[in-house]
């Protein structure tokens, strides 16, 4: 865990633009949020499958850290990025409503 801490600290510092404390907290919160949100989204599946998928997502997130810069970039108020996600979600919502889970 110490090495993860050091790696995160060094990477956040080297990339700049974010308060280190806020960035750190955000990293750990993302690590907690993603698997929980995934479990909430996949409730239709049986508990074993959703547990395995949640563990896989946690591992994926843990190996992708630090995420905060990527998340900040994708959540910027840039018109093109917002339009991209709106188009994706509109399609996804209609697909899930009509096609079902």
């Amino acid at each position: 865990m110490r090495s993860l801490y050091d790696t995160l600290h060094e990477t956040l510092k080297s990339r700049g633009g974010t308060h280190i404390g806020g960035g750190f907290t955000a990293e750990y919160m993302l690590l907690a949020f993603f698997p929980l949100a995934f479990v909430a989204l996949l409730r239709g599946l049986d508990s074993l499958t959703s547990a395995v998928l949640a563990i896989l997502v946690t591992a994926l997130v843990a190996f992708s850290l630090p995420l905060v810069k990527k998340v900040s970039r994708e959540n910027s108020d840039h018109f093109a990025i917002a339009a991209f996600y709106i188009a994706i979600v509109m399609g996804l919502v209609l697909f899930l409503m009509v096609g079902g889970f």
């Binding site: 308060h19 806020g22 907290t25 955000a26 989204l41 959540n75 899930l96 409503m97």
Partner: peptide, 27 residues
């Protein structure tokens, strides 16, 4: 409609996660 409920829950959770985390990193 369970589909609607699931979609609303999922997008609300994502909003809570991104809204809170993005608040943390603002300057």
């Amino acid at each position: 409609l369970s589909n609607m409920s699931a979609v609303m829950v999922g997008l609300s959770v994502i909003t809570l996660a991104f809204g809170s985390v993005m608040a943390l990193v603002q300057t």
